[in-house]
């Protein structure tokens, strides 16, 4: 089942001044349960592609479908609601809410969705157990290591039961042990819960674990290999 489908995506920044073509006709389909790394050198367009897939940015041309829903025609508010329900985000800098605890950060999206307290509590405990942070429920981000914060971010991304998770350079700020631990968790979620993961990365450790590697260069797909 297609989770993500992009066709003929182009993205040009500053079209009226000094145009920069970040994407030049990208076609990509990602099926449910895939564990995909989008790789490429800096400026290759991988973050731009991820932002467009995540509904954070709009393509200059081309179409994008998520779970069969076309994003191109959605208004800003519709996109926000769509992201809330259908997409989980993991950012390079964790981006947790510093004033909230681990549990509160994890349940945040569910609160936005208006889920009941009992449902939230159960899901938070379940998710934090999965990412190995059951004993850190009441800790604030400042009391956690970088690896632990990123695991909270993964738990938060999963909380709303999205169609897939977009992770933009999720290991860029982590040491080897934390990276390995995070990738173990993501792989497990992929295997056990069939959660679809799409990473942008230059981290060889992530590339080695990915089952599909899409290489971008100069805004175009250079290769697309499944292991």
């Amino acid at each position: 089942m297609k989770v993500i489908e992009v066709k003929g995506i182009t993205k040009t920044y500053n079209p009226d001044k000094v145009p920069v073509e970040a994407l030049r006709g990208v076609d990509l389909t990602i099926e449910a349960g895939e564990f995909t790394a989008i790789v490429g050198p800096s400026g290759s367009g991988k973050t731009t592609l991820l932002n467009i897939i995540g509904g954070l940015d709009r393509p200059t041309s081309g179409d994008i479908w998520i779970g069969g829903t076309k994003l191109n025609d959605m208004s800003e508010n519709q996109l926000i609601k769509f992201r809330q329900k259908e997409i989980g985000f993991v950012f390079q800098s964790y981006n947790l809410i510093p004033v909230l605890t681990t549990a509160e950060n994890t349940e945040f999206v569910m609160l936005l969705q208006g889920r009941s307290k009992s449902e939230r509590d159960t899901r938070v405990k379940e998710l934090l157990a999965e990412v190995g942070l059951s004993d850190k429920l009441d800790k604030r981000p400042s009391e956690l290591s970088g690896g632990q914060q990123q695991r909270v971010a993964v738990a938060r991304a999963l909380a709303a039961k999205p169609k897939f998770i977009l992770a933009d350079e999720p290991t860029a700020n982590l040491d080897s042990a934390s990276t390995s631990n995070l990738l173990d968790i993501m792989e497990k979620l992929n295997h056990v819960e069939h959660m679809t993961f799409v990473f942008s990365t230059h981290d060889q450790r992530v590339i080695d674990r990915a089952r599909r590697v899409v290489v971008l260069e100069d805004g175009m797909i250079k290769s697309d290999d499944r292991k």
Binding site: N77, V109, A160
Partner: peptide, 9 residues
């Protein structure tokens, strides 16, 4: 980030 993960304007 809040808007990215779905907190409406």
């Amino acid at each position: 980030m809040l808007q990215a993960i779905g907190m409406g304007k």
